[in-house]
Design a protein around this nucleic acid. Sequence first.
RNA 1: CCUCAAUAAAAUGUCAAUC
Length: 420
Amino acid sequence: AYTFAAVISACASVKMWQLAINLLRRMDKLGVKKDVVCYNAAVGVCARAGRYKEATELIDEMIRERFRPNVVTYSAAISACEKGKNLKRARELMRRMGRAGVAPNVYTFASLISVCEKAGDWDAARQTLRSMKDWNLAPNAYCFNACIAACEKCGRSREAVELLEEMKAAGVPPDVYSYSSAIGALAKSGNVAWSKMLFDEMNARGVVPNMFTYSQLIIGYDKAGRWQEAIEVLGILRSNRMVPNVVAYGAAINACKNGKQWEKARELFDDMNTLGVKPNQHVFSTLLRASSELRDSAMVTTLLKQMKTAKVEANLITYNACLAAFARSMDLQGALDTLDKIRASGMKPDKVTYSACITVAEKCARWDVALRLMHEMSCDGIRPDTIFFNACISACEKSRQWRKAIEILEDIKREGLQPD
RNA sequence: CCUCAAUAAAAUGUCAAUC
């Protein structure tokens, strides 16, 4: 049974909760006596997989087989409710635990508060924290941190900072989780000055900031429109011999985007590449936007190639971002190629796609292409609006196709739209 | 500490779109 519990528990790292349950069954067949710890291990695996249903079923089974689920069992089952953000279920388990005469411990509460956090209920989180004293339990860092995280998620920076102070008063030293969450809460509420104060405070107290902490700070500067300082944080990170990850870079690049610093965004992206930090779909999208702003359609092509080699999948949004770039640089061929790629990869072009394509055609005075696109669009079941027709008329105008222009005007009326 | 349970992070598309 000792060995089995260890093996069952190991199923968690390979995310195989079914295997964990199967192993329990195998024990019966092999005549090995099961015990509570084996069950707990299996419940723990289900918990990490977010399978609260299976976790609860295991508890039922335990009772049928005359095992007594203990506080570990229930705590694990409660944390299984996190992924599904199922606070109701977690509370049910809490009641069930009480009926079984099992007293909760700090693990139980930390799990329950964490469920509140996932469910986006900061008030429930705080009340749960408060209710610990009814059980003569003193919250530990896990409990406080989960509660601060709940406040952060709900944008309650005031409460997050209060909890941080409460921790100190209770003799629970805030750790890197506590500080990162509180810094994040302040950052998102636009109070980066306070975020920075907490950042300095943690350093003074010997709490070492990690990537989460730095990212939060970057986000704070982003929200405050201070992109220069956002970039500087990356420098601090590096001077501490850390390599910023994709989140830290992504946040800084985003700060550049919001500050319309397209050239800076490109520089950061290059840095990322030289450091071997893999950009993700979001970073690529932002860079595509940058290339659009910089009117650099060569950059678009390069980015697409890089995505391919890096095996980052392009979705319709990515392609539409490319189209926007081609539209700006009046690269009709690039746009039409992108449209082909979209179709070739089995995606359905949407209104945005066609809008961008028709815009390029219009800018290039290609009334024929514009009209063809209009036709293809209606074949795809997308109803053009006045803007589309206007773009087409404009395309005709640029190429002096007066008769065509008038025909389109008639089409507008046929579609039941008002020419403006 | 080790047979079982608990905590945190950013960001994406046409619209400075037609006249």
